[in-house]
């Protein structure tokens, strides 16, 4: 199993993963603990150097760590760099 796939599986529970995939919110991969590539986000809901939250359709993805910054940010893609400690996947409140 590829590293990106392992991280992806660790970040998303099996049920959420399927739903996330269905809803088009995809975390493409990570570069060790130094970067996360996010695709299909719908904007940034929180931004600090310890936590960056991406909002999606029904879900949000939180990247926690130290010295986090957005290496690049476009409409659908983002690259987070820094010392990444955890990825949280949260269901948005209805």
């Amino acid at each position: 199993m590829k590293l990106t796939e392992r991280v992806y599986n660790a970040a998303f529970s099996p049920g959420d993963r399927e739903e996330a995939l269905l809803r088009g919110f995809i975390c493409v991969g990570t570069a060790g603990d130094r970067g996360v590539f996010v695709e299909g986000h719908r904007g940034i809901s929180a931004f600090s150097n310890t936590e960056i939250a991406f909002s999606g359709k029904g879900f949000s993805l939180r990247v926690a760590g130290k010295g986090l910054f957005l290496r690049a940010l476009s409409r659908e893609k983002a690259m987070v760099s820094g010392e990444i400690c955890a990825l949280y996947f949260e269901r948005n409140e209805p």
Binding site: F47, N49, L70, A72, L73, S74
Partner: peptide
């Protein structure tokens, strides 16, 4: 708009 190196 593409942004690069967004730091707090």
């Amino acid at each position: 708009v593409c942004l690069y190196g967004v730091r707090e």
